[in-house]
């Protein structure tokens, strides 16, 4: 059994609570961080929360020449080891979903880390469009 992060756009109301939750859960020095999740609208009143899908065969992991992106077997997230990152931007260019991001304030690469096993977005999502649940993984 493994945890999986589930995005259900049908339930998304576009309230953007997830964005706030993400920014504050990644706060640094009491200042909000860069949100890793984007509730984007694709049609009027229809929303898709775009967030890292933690792909199995992830392009970001493949593109990182310095092994800074690695799967965290506990949470299932692909974690960025900031100490190994040299900001070459390969992951940002390679991610087909645009979910590896630059935090211009701290001059860092950031990506969703599933809040180390307790995703704040899922925690606060009022409509349960974002869920972090146990599912059977082959």
């Amino acid at each position: 059994m493994k945890y999986r992060f589930i995005v259900d756009p049908v339930l998304c109301t576009g309230c953007r609570t997830c964005e706030l939750a993400c920014a504050f859960s990644h706060a640094r020095n009491l200042k909000q961080g860069r949100s890793r999740i984007y509730p984007l609208t694709h049609e009027k009143d229809k929303y898709v929360p775009v967030v890292c899908l933690q792909c199995d065969d992830a392009a970001c992991v493949k593109s990182c020449m310095f092994d800074a992106l690695r799967r965290n077997e506990e949470t299932g997230a692909i974690d960025l080891d900031v100490a190994r990152c040299v900001k070459c931007m390969a992951c940002i260019a390679a991610c087909p979903f645009g979910c590896a991001l630059v935090d211009e304030v701290h001059n860092e690469i950031v990506k969703c880390d599933l809040c180390k096993g307790d995703p704040a977005c899922a925690h606060f999502c009022p409509s349960k469009a974002l869920r972090y649940t146990k599912i059977a993984v082959r």
């Binding site: 995005v7 756009p9 984007y38 984007l40 609208t41 694709h42 049609e43 229809k46 898709v48 775009v50 991610c95 087909p96 979903f97 645009g98 979910c99």
Partner: peptide, 10 residues
């Protein structure tokens, strides 16, 4: 790419 993702998923 994020916009495209939203469109495709939508």
């Amino acid at each position: 790419k994020r916009t495209e993702t939203a469109k495709t998923m939508g």
